[in-house]
């Protein structure tokens, strides 16, 4: 598995991140993990190769949208995860590059389909 097959998971709740990491690992993909905005900024600064990003916006301030925009600028597909959906949040998400928005709690089967779909379709990022 090459570094370009990696998924980025972003979230502020460590338990959520653990569960997501374990779940994605079971699907057979490698991950990079950012539990804070600082970690995410560092990953972006380091220009780590990534195939796809799942961003749980819960617990982050507005700065998370800038990071999303930076991911989008690198053509990394974005799946935004949020606790509830509002028109304003959806607009913000799509404006900053989200391809899909999923509401928590996620259904594992649906998430697995979405991840496989992205991983197979996404063009890859050369970093």
């Amino acid at each position: 598995m090459s570094a370009t097959d990696r998924l980025l998971i972003v979230g502020s709740n460590a338990r959520n991140q653990d569960l997501l990491a374990a779940f994605i690992h079971r699907l057979g993909y490698a991950i990079l993990r950012a539990d804070t905005l600082a970690m995410l900024t560092q990953l972006l600064d380091d220009a780590q190769p990534l195939r796809f990003a799942l961003v749980d916006i819960t617990g982050f301030d507005a700065a998370i949208w800038e990071c999303c925009a930076r991911l989008h600028a690198r053509d990394i597909p974005l799946l935004i995860i949020s606790p509830r959906q509002s028109a304003a949040m959806r607009q913000l998400a799509f404006t900053h590059g989200a391809q899909t928005i999923m509401e928590k709690p996620l259904v594992m089967r649906e998430l697995a389909d979405a991840i496989r779909g992205f991983m197979q379709a996404a063009p890859g990022d050369a970093g």
Partner: peptide, 13 residues
């Protein structure tokens, strides 16, 4: 240890 989660339902986890 803030083990609460909401990403998946308890049923799934």
């Amino acid at each position: 240890e803030v083990q609460a989660y909401d990403i998946f339902t308890p049923a799934e986890v």
